[in-house]
Write a protein that binds this DNA or RNA. Structure first.
Length: 170
DNA sequence: AAACGGCAAAATG
DNA sequence: CATTTTGCCGTTT
């Protein structure tokens, strides 16, 4: 099914993320693992396919800007082929939430024309393979609460704060 | 077929 | 108010 992926580290002020690349583009982004010393099994630079190198350069910039709460300029192609149709629709909706803005899970459900699939939207957000760059953290509960975040609420809070979003309720 | 969620609205105290 | 049902839906097992 899925072919081999190239994994490259993205050092940031918030830790070392891991970017996964397929033949089609950026396919995954892992949050830094607490004090884990895992392989960057990174192939030597010059053995990397040219497109991957280019994509990675873009990804590094995009992530650093995103973490700084700044708008990203360019983004490498994303490979979201692993997702279901519904998930891809949700992720598409997420990408349309501009910086500094938020949506509720219910609003996203309506945006994908499944107004009753509110809970399923939450699951789809949790299944987002490229968090931050696909801003699933910009989705909040209808009642103003933050809602959940698979990678941990610290991240969701941090990201929203850096984007200048009012933390309504904790 | 059943269980499980990053939810929401209604019911309840 | 805060908490507890009750309804919903895509995914996973």
């Amino acid at each position: 099914m899925n072919a081999k992926r190239i994994v490259l580290p993205i050092p940031t002020g918030a830790g070392v993320f891991l970017a996964h690349y397929s033949a089609r583009g950026l396919a995954g982004l892992e949050f830094p693992r607490g004090n884990q010393l895992h392989r960057p099994s990174v192939a030597p630079r010059r053995s990397l396919p040219l497109p991957v190198r280019r994509w990675h350069r873009l990804a590094v910039q995009a992530l650093r800007r995103a973490l700084a709460g700044k708008a990203m300029v360019d983004l490498s192609p994303l490979d979201l082929s692993a997702g279901t149709l519904f998930q891809k629709r949700v992720w598409g909706a997420l990408r349309r939430i501009s910086l500094g803005k938020t949506m509720t899970y219910a609003q996203v459900a309506t945006a994908v024309w499944k107004p009753k699939a509110v809970r399923a939207v939450g699951s789809a957000c949790g299944a987002n393979p490229i968090p931050i760059l696909i801003p699933c953290h910009r989705v909040l509960r209808t009642n103003g609460q933050l809602g959940g975040f698979t990678a941990g609420m610290k991240w969701k809070r941090l990201l929203l704060e850096r984007e200048g979003v009012r933390a309504s309720v904790g």
